[in-house]
Design a protein around this nucleic acid. Structure first.
Lengths: 264, 264
DNA sequence: CGGGTCGTTGAGTGGGGTCAACACGGGTGG
DNA sequence: CCACCCGTGTTGACCCCACTCAACGACCCG
């Protein structure tokens, strides 16, 4: 019999491929110590020693860092099944914090047995895929914050979340509600909450989203994804949906030629 | 007999701990296919299949992504010893490109044997540490670009590079020259090259840096680090530097030797 | 000498930040 | 049931940091 925690964990690991029965058996016994976290409380905090590996069971969590002047940068939004710490085997104290954005639950598993479990090819592959997905998202975020307008940043974040929720089976139909505060969104996309509010209002007139108190309703997921345009590369292997036709690749030899519009 | 390529690679892996003689023996035979890369040419390009694992031997490289509007976001700056691809075992095509910022060299090693080599605890530990360092840097960049002023972003990037160069033994005195174009710096910190130029000029009056054509001279590394203030958390375990035991002259020559190709 | 790359500078604009006040709603306690 | 409070969202006024467009300058190399 599978606890709910083990089920969420294994489902996540199997998202990109399948695990053998023995793999699953070995993994599920690790999942322990369920815990409830109120919104705005930390699972662990920057500077803490790395002990158990926490995984999200329900709710929305985030990795974040606080700066000396009190501002916060959210590094990633964590959904059910996600690992709070991308670095399974690091011995360093955490250099970031993880906190709950809304009421949610986590489980914890000890890291030590993982070392041995990595001998199993299926287990290693599953963690590697999860890891790659996590990394691809963080690259996406860096590009987003570094080079895109406030509207684009927000739309892309929403789009990302719709894909991830869909992969979890938490998106049915064309509507979804994100239980996120505007202040949280602002810290995720690198804006102030005031400007984020204004931009949301503008987007609202576009008809794709509706801000409500304490949440954002995306009432046209398909339209939102279309507005963002691309099939994000981080989805590779995540969702078994045929990608739409892609624009041709940029020429590859010289950076310069790749930056400029195609010649002729 | 250790090739230079193997030496650079092993030195990097040993930065956070030591490898057994057998580990090193097994790893060094993987290092092959040295290649020279002109500035502004790619090692690989977004969309390419992941084949060999490239490592930097000399020069400055970067991971980057190009956007539809032609703008570029640099995701990381790669120094000698760094792995071009943080995801050793991913099977997905690359979702970013790696290119040379100045003339430099790489080696390539096949990924397949790595799977087996990870059975060796020392090898697994070394790669995990390298990996953790890479991740910590990318978190740092996200915070930098998301929440800091242009001056701070630039100073922090410079400071980061001084620490990393020091760890490589490429920083001996209080002065170091970064062979980076202003356009590259701008794409690394998420600014336009015009504004970056102006900010550099302001910083110049602060007396810590001097922009020259095609490079930035940091002529007060200690002062720069002090201005940035903190001992960055990503350094944990990286540097056990006692002040250079015997200051050998000509610090600039050493950097130059890393930037310019040695006889091949 | 010419052309290409890289850097610098100016003028003008606007996106986004800051500060501050207020509105709204949901909880809590009297 | 109302009064109050606190967390959250909204709006206005103002400003300035950073972007844009454009031209020019400096340097390098053939």
């Amino acid at each position: 019999m599978l606890t709910e925690a083990a089920r969420v964990f294994l489902q996540r690991l199997e998202r990109f491929g399948t695990l053998g029965a023995a793999d699953k058996q070995a993994l599920q016994v690790l999942v322990q110590h369920p815990a409830v976290h109120e919104a705005k409380t930390d699972v662990f905090h920057e500077g803490d020693e790395r002990r158990e590996l926490h995984i999200v069971l329900s709710g929305f969590f985030c990795r974040y860092r606080l700066l000396a002047d009190g501002s916060r940068q959210i590094l990633a939004i964590l959904l059910p099944g996600d690992l709070c710490d991308p670095n399974l085997f690091s011995k360093q104290p955490y250099d970031f914090s993880v906190g709950a954005l809304v009421l949610g639950r986590t489980a914890a598993l000890s890291r030590l047995p993982l070392h041995d479990l990595f001998r199993r090819p299926g287990v290693a592959r599953a963690f590697a895929s999860t890891r790659h997905f996590d990394d691809a998202l963080s690259r996406e975020w860096l590009v987003n914050i570094g080079r895109r307008s406030s509207e684009q940043r927000i739309l892309r974040l929403f789009s990302e979340l719709t894909w991830r929720l869909e992969a979890l089976g938490l998106l049915t139909g064309n509507v979804v509600t994100l239980p996120l505060l505007q202040a949280d969104l602002a810290d995720a996309v690198g804006l102030t909450h005031v400007h984020l509010c204004r931009t949301l209002k503008q987007l609202q007139t576009g008809g794709l989203i509706r801000p409500e108190r304490g949440r954002i309703v995306l009432h046209d997921v398909a339209g939102l994804r279309k507005a963002v345009g691309v099939w994000p590369s981080y989805l590779a292997g995540l969702i078994s949906v045929a990608p739409p036709p892609q624009a041709p690749e940029a020429p590859r030899r010289q950076l310069a030629s790749a930056v400029e519009p195609l010649p002729i």
